[in-house]
């Protein structure tokens, strides 16, 4: 699954640490999601979308292999 967290983070001028603190997760979680190596839970995906005031599909792009 691809995502645009890095883009949105840059738009809001946030570091990975800042975003992690705002979402109540570890910095490692943000790093792994941004790199596309870890797919977040639905709850966290909604939390991220809500934080950036966008729809979930604006941030996460599902790719069928």
């Amino acid at each position: 699954m691809k995502n645009k967290i890095k883009v949105y983070r840059a738009m809001y001028d946030l570091t990975q640490e800042d975003l992690a603190k705002k979402l109540g997760v570890s910095r490692q979680t943000i790093i792994s999601i941004e790199k596309g190596k870890y797919d977040p839970s639905l709850k966290l995906a909604f939390k991220i979308a809500k934080f950036f005031n966008v729809k979930i599909e604006d941030i996460f792009i599902y790719e069928d292999k």
Partner: peptide
């Protein structure tokens, strides 16, 4: 390995 780990879903994973 994080120095001050927060127990979240990634760590659990």
């Amino acid at each position: 390995v994080p120095k001050h780990p927060i127990e979240d879903e990634f760590m659990e994973h």
